[in-house]
């Protein structure tokens, strides 16, 4: 079980969190301006790196906040966690 640093509550056990997929996948402000290829990319295409990965987690059984985590998918080491809207470290 990972120990996830919630930017609001501090280190908490993974069991309190829900995974939210890759971070920084931006939903266009006006989806109507995005072409089909772009929208398909937004809907379905994700990176699947072996190594550093920026991903969303929600402290579902805690403060309820979504936030971002930079985790190495190979070692599971978490390098940083940061709030929604903050730039990726």
């Amino acid at each position: 079980m990972l120990l996830i640093p919630c930017p609001y509550c501090g280190n908490r056990p993974e069991i309190e969190f829900a995974y939210g997929g890759e971070a920084h996948v931006v939903r266009a402000a006006d989806p109507g301006q995005v072409d089909d290829a772009g929208w398909t990319e937004f809907l379905y295409c994700r990176n699947n790196p072996r190594g550093d990965h920026a991903e969303r987690w929600r402290h579902a059984y805690g403060c309820g906040r979504f936030f971002n985590v930079k985790r190495n998918t190979y070692t599971d080491h978490i390098e940083a966690s940061y709030r929604i809207g903050e730039t990726r470290p």
Partner: peptide, 10 residues
């Protein structure tokens, strides 16, 4: 005070 889980209950 915090929200957490106790077994499968919030």
């Amino acid at each position: 005070v915090t929200r957490t889980n106790f077994f499968k209950a919030e």
